[in-house]
Design a protein around this nucleic acid. Sequence first.
DNA 1: GCAAAAGTGTTCAAACTACACCCATGA
DNA 2: TCATGGGTGTAGTTTGAACACTTTTGC
Lengths: 224, 224
Amino acid sequence: MSQSIKLTIDAVVFGYEEGKITVLLIKRKYEPFKNKWAIPGGFIQGDESLEQAVERELYEETGIKINYLEQLYTFGQPERDPRGRIVSIAYFGLVRPDAFKLFASTDAEDAQWFSIDELPELSFDHKEILELAIKRLQSKITYEPIGFELLDKKFPFSDLEKLYSTLLGRKVDRRNFRKKIVGLNVLDELDEKVSKGSGRPANLFQFNQKRYFQLKKEGIIFEI
Amino acid sequence: MSQSIKLTIDAVVFGYEEGKITVLLIKRKYEPFKNKWAIPGGFIQGDESLEQAVERELYEETGIKINYLEQLYTFGQPERDPRGRIVSIAYFGLVRPDAFKLFASTDAEDAQWFSIDELPELSFDHKEILELAIKRLQSKITYEPIGFELLDKKFPFSDLEKLYSTLLGRKVDRRNFRKKIVGLNVLDELDEKVSKGSGRPANLFQFNQKRYFQLKKEGIIFEI
DNA sequence: GCAAAAGTGTTCAAACTACACCCATGA
DNA sequence: TCATGGGTGTAGTTTGAACACTTTTGC
């Protein structure tokens, strides 16, 4: 009872740059949807795990290495791909800003970051996949500390605040936000400052993953 | 670039009976794991959607029809199935108590309900799948009104309370719980009462899905 | 009239929201 | 010295948690 169903993975990779959430897309080289933009992805090889497939495809197609990856949803409508029955396991990943530079140095004219407010037309059902990923990202940052994965390892509080404000689509009160996050006890305040040209230099913070896992084990939950 | 990867669905179906959360398992007829218990599931046919595949397999293997279904997770570790590379898209479903009777009337000696506190040994990685499903159910009832799908359409408040108390694994305060749920405005109080033999008869309630969707559209969220 | 389950309000503590001024630096 | 962004506390409101007695029915 062998199936002719084929299996692919797709990866929605988010970044954060200049106050905008961005997503990594590739320009397709072949039909169908030749020269159209699409979420990176491809077929799974027989001996690799799903996550390995995602990391491999991303690296092959865009040269990028992600630092957070989770499974999003599996899309399997019979008519979603004109080539036949193709089921795709979609993932979503996050990269730190330094990945942008890394990426820029590779030869990948067919891969590009787009602000999620200015998306091109997408291939297949990739619009639907991307929209689901955005929803997931928006809701997930409120109950898991994944926002840090979009920032540099050391970041000023204002960056975190701006990120949340962007993702949630509303202003967040600086004082209340800081109180809340500091109260969660998962940030280390460093003895470093950074200046953004003008204004008082900001203290740098760093996410303490060890402490987070410790607290999580104790049943203390992250919640914004 | 055709793959030899095969694709199956598996369905974790939960019920609720006598204050216990139960799960539907089947006894395997063939190797591997012959005569061992497993989550119902099977191969997807070329022309059906994933959800259709789940419903078909469930009906074929257990005679049951579920009234709530959602995708859980896709399991794809290369070594999860000794027969070769088989990726499985796991779903989780809920059935109302009347499905128990329906089910009992069919010829399905190889399918059986188990309390999730007294599970037999399971085939493949089905223990892992089931554990994930339980976690998902536990967390999901706190932010989506899916608990009602485990009760009769008309139910006394105490049933709902007992269900939550069972799923969350802790006592819930009757007064506070009722206040909270009534405040959500998604229950209709009926002009019917039900008596459980002794004690004051209870008013029956019914989940009003229309009103829930309406409220959801307006951005009002369900949360326990 | 008594056992058994249903129904109902109030009080206290904790968490959340709103809000404005001073601080440190670069130009 | 001024413009710019960083840093901080308090008061009022809302929400959540704890808690006990009355009501309705069957026996």
